[in-house]
């Protein structure tokens, strides 16, 4: 068997050095072709140097280690390195993807390397299988990792920027290409469409009630049926009566 070739990707110099020393102790036969300081460099090294193995830190500037693995389509065998990520570790375990925890210890490294040697030695690993494995990890993470919701909305007025905390927003109102943000104290215009905002905000806190309106539940003053049987929502600190379209009326029937 030829000497195994590998690259190491981590944004912290000391951690790259640490892994390198440990690898030299545990697997002196391995050749380290290069080191990458961020995701983009890692991608470049994999494409140009064609290593057998890539030790990829998950959290890196540019693109994450997992994105690097996905983008290389199984061109090399990835081993992920993370300081702390419960969700990723869980996904690696279920999908039998190799990973290392920082600080990397010699004992743990030996174990992992034994596994990799077996897999690489018995038969060449199918690039397609590798690539689907990584894909499955990413999909699993999408489901299990708690979603981070938007906390602040950035608005710009000429030179100055304004960050609006989402819980101060009363409602959003689509207006042509813009979205109006109405808070207790002021109004802002942003270019982001309401449809996009809907996916970024916590659905428990913000309800779409109309094609052009999304309200902050906490700021609803009252909901009353109109003469035509539709619902009208009145927000606190605002005189506007917001109509609820038929598609969203079920939200209020349960109340």
């Amino acid at each position: 068997m030829n000497r195994l070739k590998a690259i190491i990707a981590d944004d912290e110099e000391a951690l790259r050095a640490h892994l390198k020393t440990r690898l030299a102790q545990v697997w002196p036969d391995m050749e380290i072709l290069g080191e990458a300081r961020n995701g983009i460099e890692a991608l470049g090294l994999i494409q140009s140097l064609k290593p057998d193995l890539a030790f990829l830190d998950i959290r890196m500037p540019g693109i994450s280690g997992m994105e690097v693995a996905r983008k290389t389509h199984g061109a090399c065998y990835p081993v992920f390195v993370t300081a702390y990520d419960e969700y990723a570790v869980e996904a690696f375990e279920t999908e039998a993807v190799d990973y290392l925890l920082k600080p990397v210890t010699a004992t743990r490294l030996e174990k992992t390397l034994k596994k990799i040697q077996q897999r690489l030695g018995s038969r060449r690993v199918e690039p397609n299988a590798l690539s689907t494995k990584v894909q499955r990890v990413l999909e699993r993470l999408d489901q299990t990792r708690p979603k981070e919701y938007l906390q602040w909305i950035r608005t710009q007025h000429r030179e100055s920027i304004h960050l609006v905390p989402v819980d101060e927003v009363l409602f959003f109102n689509a207006q042509d290409k813009y979205t109006r943000i109405i808070t207790t104290e002021a109004e802002f215009l942003i270019k982001k469409p309401i449809k996009e905002l809907e996916t970024e905000l916590d659905p428990k806190k913000f309800w779409r009630i109309h094609r052009s309106t999304m309200v902050n539940i906490a700021a609803v003053d009252k909901v009353s049926p109109s003469l035509t049987g539709k619902y009208l929502v009145k927000m606190r600190h605002s005189e506007e009566m917001l109509p609820v379209s038929r598609n969203y009326a079920h939200l209020f029937k349960k109340m």
């Binding site: 951690l15 959290r59 300081a83 600080p103």
Partner: peptide
């Protein structure tokens, strides 16, 4: 994340 990365650094 901060804690474990820092500990790894110290170890190195």
């Amino acid at each position: 994340h901060f804690l474990f990365n820092t500990l790894s650094n110290i170890l190195t």
